[in-house]
């Protein structure tokens, strides 16, 4: 009976289909069953001798098989092709890739950028100014007349023409106040110079100056701003404030953070103090306001100054300041 044969054929087809593993099998299979001279066509041809009813019935069964086969084969082919590409072609995957190395910014630049971002968030304006200064801006206007022993605090490089290399970024306070009318909030990062060279001192280093002048910014606010800065820079960290002295601020203070090396227990880095001094600050001295013609009854403000290298040394655990200006590649690469 032909219908039984067709039934048998269907079983055979699906059994054979299961055996297809690669494109060759697939092609053989296709020829065997779906080719012009394939089995399905052969049966279809046989049908011409049957009754119309049977022709219709068996023909539709055969066509159904054919259709289903074609669909499944397409899927099978895709499956094989995808699998084909999963093959290990013998590439050595342990070899490194083709590198396009990026450079780095200098650690000092990075710290300056970080600090600037902190103060930008608070609405401080970043300004820059000359590195070669006059006695007036560097000292006199900041209430450090030439007979003042405070000048010993800053060993100064003088130029032969009488100018000097600024010993701190504080002259920017004067320049900023002369150019602007209060209220104002500025920070001024930049290079400064002092006649001093050892493992802790470089004749050239960087500072960041801050100044805020308004109707009633006060000493408590200064503490608030400085604590905010310390937390942003070093994370949750203990700070303390000590009275200090700078001729251009009154009252003056110094801020220490808990030593990051020993967590306050005392070590070589902090000289057993458990604290690291990181900045000086204070309320702007009235003499400074007078030198820029600000009405001291109207305005008050605070200023602060910090050493960038010092912050970098604490943050990165560097013990010799000179390494910043040697610029060895291995050192620079560490800041990727």
């Amino acid at each position: 009976m032909i219908s039984e044969e067709i039934e048998k054929l269907e079983k055979e087809v699906w059994k054979d289909f299961q055996k297809i593993e690669n494109l060759y099998h697939l092609e053989d299979f296709r020829i065997k069953y779906l080719g012009k001279k394939g089995k399905i066509n052969w049966y279809l041809k046989q049908l011409k001798d049957f009754s119309l009813e049977e022709k219709k019935k068996l023909g539709s069964i055969l066509n159904q098989i054919k259709e289903e086969l074609e669909t499944k084969l397409k899927l099978k082919e895709r499956e094989i092709l995808l699998k084909e590409e999963d093959k290990d072609i013998g590439l050595d995957l342990t070899l490194p890739g083709r590198i396009f190395p990026l450079g780095t910014l200098h650690p000092i630049t990075k710290i300056i950028e970080e600090l600037c971002e902190i103060f930008l968030k608070l609405g401080f304006e970043i300004i820059t100014g000359p590195e070669i200064e006059t006695e007036y801006y560097n000292f006199t206007a900041l209430n450090i007349p030439d007979w003042h022993p405070a000048r010993d605090m800053q060993a100064t490089f003088y130029l032969k023409n009488g100018a000097l290399l600024r010993t701190h970024t504080s002259p920017m306070q004067i320049r900023a106040m002369l150019e602007r009318t209060p209220p104002l909030r500025i920070i001024a990062p930049g290079k400064v110079y002092r006649c001093d060279a050892d493992i802790r001192h470089s004749p050239m280093f960087h500072q960041l100056e801050g100044l805020m002048v308004d109707k009633d910014v006060n000493f408590s606010d200064l503490k608030g701003i400085l604590i905010y800065f310390a937390k942003e820079t070093f994370g949750e960290i203990k700070v303390r404030f000590r009275p200090s002295y700078f001729p251009f601020t009154e009252p003056s203070l110094e801020m220490d953070i808990e030593c990051v090396m020993c967590k306050g227990r005392g070590c070589k880095v902090c000289g057993n103090a458990g604290w690291l001094e990181i900045l000086g600050a204070g309320m702007v001295h009235p003499e400074v306001f007078k030198s820029v013609n600000y009405d001291i009854n109207m305005w008050q403000g605070f200023a602060f100054g910090l050493g960038i290298e010092r912050i970098a040394m604490i943050k990165y655990g560097i013990d010799d300041i000179r390494i910043f200006f040697e610029n060895h590649l291995i050192f620079l690469e560490s800041f990727k």
Partner: peptide, 13 residues
């Protein structure tokens, strides 16, 4: 930096 350069800071003097 993106072109692979390292920034250096040398003395002004």
């Amino acid at each position: 930096k993106s072109l692979g350069f390292f920034e250096v800071i040398t003395y002004s003097f």
